[in-house]
């Protein structure tokens, strides 16, 4: 199991524990910080701080982004694999954190229910938020000009941003990229690809051979380039086929100026917004065909639909999400401890 790449995160805590220097540095840092609250954004490193949390005086929060063991199992299944030892160890680890946590925060109803099923007793729901992806001023003008020079003005533009996280790449590959090959349903589209998801795309392209000139892999981008890309995009795509939690990308896309096309998984936590103007929820097996069938000829109409949905998606902004979270009594209690 230890050699399995899907056990990577599970090895992190082991690696620190087996390295005396790292272990001592961590212990010294924790002693210096003397935390009142340990806030875990994932369960993988919990074994390293669990001894510190033996004291009930320390408040522990697990602010999860997925029910990790279920997400890992789904991902493995998507890859045609089972690795029950990894999944079981991950479940045990996550359950141990939940057993100690004074508060568990889920970012979707499904995740909150999943944490309760694992034994969580105090669960708050805080969905992921986003900032509008397109700058309100012309700070992206230079980037805009640069990108415009690369694009064919006659072809519709898709945009996708994501980390080098397998569910991001698998969904993008299977639902979009392969359909952009000559003869595919999306052969007449361009794609602005941003973030480290460009890395698995590059590997795939190298293995496959050939070129896909209408895919512009921009890699990690600064705020101006990201803003420019979303300003130019006719459609922000969310081709997710696995994963839990709620997607930051979805909130960002909803607050943007493009059409939004995503799978039901991508709209988890945003179901009520799938009927908003310019928002399209499409099943994975119909994704490319659904995209191809959209009328994207009138860019002003696209912008108008994005503007029209603004009141319905305003709750996705970090400002709105954090205001609601701060009003949650359970979170408020933790924040008071932290002060």
């Amino acid at each position: 199991m230890t050699a399995d790449p899907h056990a990577f995160e599970l090895r992190l805590a082991d690696a620190v524990r087996r390295d005396p220097a790292l272990r001592h540095r961590l212990a010294a840092r924790l002693e210096m910080l003397a935390p009142d609250v340990i806030w875990c954004e994932q369960p993988f490193l919990w074994p390293l701080v669990a001894p510190l949390a033996e004291s009930k005086a320390i408040t522990v929060v697990y602010s999860g982004h997925n029910v990790e063991w279920r997400a890992r199992r789904e991902l493995l299944a998507r890859l045609g694999r089972t690795a029950p030892a990894i999944v079981e160890r991950l479940a045990t680890l996550e359950r141990a954190l939940i057993a100690r946590a004074d508060l568990v925060i889920g970012c979707s109803e499904a995740d909150a229910a999943g944490y309760r099923a694992m034994g969580a007793t105090s669960v708050a729901l805080v969905p992921n938020g986003a900032d509008p992806p397109v700058a309100g001023d012309n700070s992206d003008a230079a980037a805009l000009a640069r990108l415009q020079a690369r694009l064919d003005p006659g072809l519709p533009v898709l945009a996708f941003i994501g980390a080098d996280y397998l569910p991001n790449w698998i969904g993008l590959r299977d639902l979009v990229v392969t359909s952009m090959a000559p003869g595919g349903a999306l052969a007449g589209f361009q794609l602005l690809l941003m973030g480290e998801v460009c890395r698995p795309y590059a590997d795939w392209l190298r293995q496959r051979g050939g070129a896909m000139p209408q895919i512009h892999a921009l890699g990690r981008v600064d705020a101006a380039t990201r803003s420019a890309a979303f300003r130019l995009a006719d459609v922000a795509i969310l081709p997710l086929t696995t994963g839990g939690g709620t997607s930051l990308k979805t909130a960002e896309a909803l607050l943007g100026m493009s059409e939004v096309v995503g799978t039901p998984i991508a709209f988890r936590g945003h179901k009520e917004r799938t009927g908003a103007p310019g928002v399209h929820c499409v099943a994975p097996d119909a994704f490319a065909a659904g995209l191809a069938a959209l009328d994207l000829t009138d860019r002003d109409a696209i912008r108008a639909r994005a503007g029209a949905r603004r009141p319905e998606v305003a709750g996705c902004s970090w400002d709105a999400v954090l205001a609601a979270a701060a009003a949650d009594p359970a979170i408020g209690a933790v924040l008071r401890v932290a002060r």
């Binding site: 999944v87 099923a117 694992m118």
Partner: peptide, 12 residues
């Protein structure tokens, strides 16, 4: 009998 599912089902 899948261990993670077993725990959750028993708790339920």
């Amino acid at each position: 009998v899948d261990p993670p599912e077993e725990f959750e089902a028993l708790l339920a």
